[in-house]
């Protein structure tokens, strides 16, 4: 019998329907609601008046919103880059450890992810503020005389994002590196390749799916997370997530908030489609394990 009919016998198409139905009701419908809202007008007291007008999208073109958008891209981009730079060597070390150690290391690295983010943010406040543990410790040891401004600024926001998303970056990168056939490295060494060549020509290209996935898993949520800029940034850094929150809550302008969400959605989908093209579809999904 042919392979296609065997596959279909083992995994009949009707198995797809529960998920499709669920997505249709709980994602597609809310998305439609969002799109309808994005064209609506704001009533006097913040209620939505259904309409079809582009005012909300036009509003987003104002310089202050563009500035916030660019800053969000910059901060999310910077923290993603730092995450990658830190996660890559970590994944390398873990992937090349003995299997038993690998398991323990992975669990230890991922464990913080399972605890409450809010509480951990407050813990960072204790560590970083001017009378906090880090500053007090450094002053006691004589390294500094005045406390360093470590909190309520962009530095703290990026640190918080890096801290939160590091495990998200490590997992896919590790999965990708772990699958690389070790014999390739042996062969390269036998042929006289140095570390840099091995890194450039073997390690980097083959771990690209992991890197792309890490970029997606870190960059996408960084743009819309608002807790970290609020708590660690002291509310002084307004990112896209804060802006959306603002529009929906204080400004009671659901139209503008929806338009902004739609724009972010489209932006990230475009990035994702580019990532798929760059790395090839199959490799991108192989890393999630």
């Amino acid at each position: 019998m042919s392979a296609i009919s065997l596959k279909q016998r083992l995994n009949p198409a009707w198995l797809l329907w529960p998920l499709c139905l669920w997505l249709g009701i709980f994602i597609i419908l809310p998305l439609c609601i969002l799109i309808v809202y994005s064209f609506s007008k704001r009533g006097t007291y913040g209620e939505l008046e259904l309409a079809f007008q582009f005012g909300n999208y036009a509003k987003l073109l104002q310089p202050v919103y563009l500035r916030i958008g660019i800053r969000s891209l910059y901060i999310a981009g910077l923290s993603t880059l730092l995450c990658l730079i830190l996660a890559f060597p970590i994944s390398l070390i873990v992937a090349f450890s003995k299997p038993r150690i690998q398991k323990i290391l992975l669990i230890a690295l991922v464990l913080p992810m399972w605890t409450n983010l809010l509480i951990r943010c407050y813990a960072w406040v204790y560590l970083l503020r001017s009378e906090g543990l880090l500053n007090s410790g450094l002053q006691m040891l004589g390294f500094i005389r005045e406390p360093l401004p470590l909190i309520y600024n962009s530095f703290a926001v990026i640190l918080g994002l890096l801290y939160n998303f590091l495990p998200f970056a490590i997992l896919p990168m590790y999965a990708s590196i772990e699958k690389i056939d070790r014999r390739l490295f042996e062969a390269a060494r036998d042929l006289g390749a140095g570390n840099w060549i091995i890194f450039k020509k073997i390690l980097l290209p083959l771990s690209l799916p992991g890197i792309s996935a890490a970029v997606l898993l870190v960059f996408v949520p960084s743009m819309s997370l608002y807790i970290i800029p609020d708590i660690l940034g002291g509310g002084k850094t307004m990112l896209l997530g804060n802006l959306i929150q603002n529009q929906f809550l204080s400004a009671r302008d659901w139209g503008a908030g929806s338009a902004l969400s739609v724009v972010i959605l489209l932006l990230i989908l475009v990035i994702w489609l580019l990532a798929m093209k760059v790395t090839g579809r199959k490799k991108l999904e192989e890393l999630f394990s």
Partner: peptide, 27 residues
């Protein structure tokens, strides 16, 4: 089904799932 049997619904399925991933919590 998605991983084994090729289906035209695949692309739109993944797209819908990505939307769920991207959409901010508040929205």
């Amino acid at each position: 089904v998605s991983a084994r049997a090729f289906s035209r619904i695949n692309g739109s399925l993944r797209l819908a799932l990505m939307c769920s991933l991207i959409l901010p919590d508040l929205v």
